[in-house]
Amino acid sequence: MAIPPRLIPVLQQFDLAHGRLTDRLAGPVMDSGNGTAIEVAPLTDEEHLWEPVPDCWSIRRRATGPGPTATLLADAGDWGRGSALPRTPRRRSELLALRADHTNGSHSPTRDDYRVIAHAAGAVAGFDSSATAWREALIGIDDPALDAVRHSAYPHGSDPEDPFIETVWWVNQELLHHGAEIALLHDLFRARQR
């Protein structure tokens, strides 16, 4: 199936943001944005669990509890993501994996099914896998699907009320916005090490 022409620039933007963030976190090199390869340190377990300010929400072992300002640990597994009701914030990997499934899969996983990955390499691989699943969901649609309301049935957003092209645009905006925050925290963690 041919990719709808109006989806191509949005998909290219997604691919660029996905690739740059994955490379920045995985290392050892990434594109500087102008084609120059620069060395970057990969995300470490210490950094992945780093809490840059007191009382921040983070991922924690379920046995230790949610931390001082969160009221629950969301997601599945031995580790959970600090949260409170209503359940926020979501991790980028979770958002991409669940939206991909609710677009092109079983439409059944919930945020409670998503497993938090506590080690850095697994978290980076999980993000890459989730982003790849979202991309696969996108390249499998036709042009009329871009205008279809409820093409994505992801229940934790405006997806059921929006034309699918708006959901696709929103996911790109989220990846760009939060990817920049992740990159900044990555730089700050490295700066405090020096």
Rank of each mutant, 00 (worst) to 15 (best):
A2W: 04
A2P: 14
I3V: 15
P4I: 07
P5H: 01
V10L: 09
D15R: 15
L16K: 09
A17V: 12
H18C: 01
T22D: 03
T22H: 08
D23T: 04
D23N: 08
R24C: 06
L25Q: 02
A26W: 09
G27R: 11
M30Q: 11
M30G: 04
M30C: 14
M30Y: 01
D31P: 02
N34K: 07
N34Y: 07
N34S: 10
I38V: 13
I38K: 05
V40Y: 15
V40G: 15
V40F: 11
V40D: 13
D45V: 05
E46C: 03
H48T: 03
V53E: 09
P54A: 14
P54W: 00
C56K: 00
C56S: 13
A63D: 12
A63I: 00
T64K: 06
G65C: 11
A70K: 09
A70H: 08
L72P: 02
L73E: 13
G77Y: 01
D78P: 08
R81M: 10
G82S: 09
S83M: 07
S83C: 05
S83K: 02
L85S: 15
R90V: 07
R91A: 14
E94F: 08
E94I: 06
L95R: 12
L96F: 10
L96E: 10
A97W: 07
L98Y: 03
D101S: 12
H102C: 04
H102P: 05
N104W: 09
N104V: 00
S106M: 09
H107P: 06
S108D: 13
T110R: 10
D112I: 03
R115Y: 03
V116I: 15
V116N: 08
V116D: 06
I117Q: 10
A118T: 02
A118Y: 08
H119Y: 13
A120D: 10
A120Q: 12
A120E: 12
A121F: 02
G122W: 00
A123K: 10
A123F: 13
V124D: 00
V124P: 07
A125F: 02
G126Q: 06
F127K: 06
F127Y: 13
D128W: 10
D128P: 06
D128S: 15
S130L: 05
T132L: 13
R135K: 12
E136P: 04
A137N: 03
D142M: 13
P144I: 08
D147S: 13
D147A: 13
D147R: 12
H151M: 11
H156R: 07
H156M: 05
G157T: 04
D159C: 01
E161A: 14
D162A: 06
D162L: 15
P163Q: 03
P163F: 02
P163M: 08
T167V: 15
T167Q: 07
T167M: 04
V168Y: 02
V171T: 01
H178Y: 15
G179D: 10
A180N: 06
A180Q: 12
E181K: 13
L184S: 06
L185G: 00
L185A: 00
L188I: 01
L188A: 11
F189T: 09
R190C: 07
R192H: 04
Q193V: 11
